[in-house]
Simulated scan of single mutants.
Amino acid sequence: MNTAVERALSGPLVVGVDGSAPSLRAVDWAADEAVLRGVPLRLVYACLWERYEGAALARDIGRPTALPLAQDVAGAAAERARVRHPDLKVTADVVFEEPEYALVREGRHASALVVGTRGRSGIAEMLLGSVSLAVAARADCPVIVLRGSHDNRATPPVRRRVVVGVGEDVKESAAVGFAVAEARRRGVTLEAVRAWRCPAHESTDHPLMSGEPASLHEERAAEELEAALRDVPADIDVRRRTVEGHAGRVLLAASHEADLLVVGARRREGHFGLQLGRVAHAALHHSACPVAVVPQQA
Score class of each variant (00 low, 15 high):
H286C: 04
A200N: 05
P64R: 15
G270P: 06
G16Y: 06
E106R: 11
V193L: 08
D72S: 06
T155A: 14
S132W: 06
G129N: 13
V170W: 13
S20C: 07
V83P: 01
R241Q: 06
R80N: 03
A282Y: 13
C141R: 11
D32P: 12
R153P: 05
S10E: 09
L13V: 09
G270A: 14
D237T: 15
Y101H: 15
E269H: 15
G248K: 09
R185D: 15
A26W: 01
G116A: 05
L36I: 15
H85S: 06
A110P: 06
V145Y: 09
L274C: 03
R197H: 14
D93K: 07
T117S: 05
G270Q: 08
Q296F: 01
A282P: 02
G273L: 13
R159D: 05
T3R: 11
V176I: 15
V170N: 06
A112G: 08
H271P: 01
R159H: 11
L252C: 11
R63C: 08
S130N: 09
V135S: 10
H85F: 04
A124W: 07
A154C: 14
S215H: 05
T204W: 10
G122T: 00
R186H: 10
A192T: 03
G54Y: 01
A174K: 11
R278W: 04
D18T: 06
P213L: 03
M209D: 03
A31Y: 09
R153D: 09
S23M: 03
V163K: 08
E212H: 04
K171M: 00
N2K: 02
R147F: 00
E97Y: 04
S121N: 07
E97G: 12
F272V: 15
C198L: 05
A46F: 10
A112Y: 04
A34G: 05
S130A: 07
L284D: 03
E219V: 08
P207W: 12
A258I: 08
L127M: 11
P40Q: 00
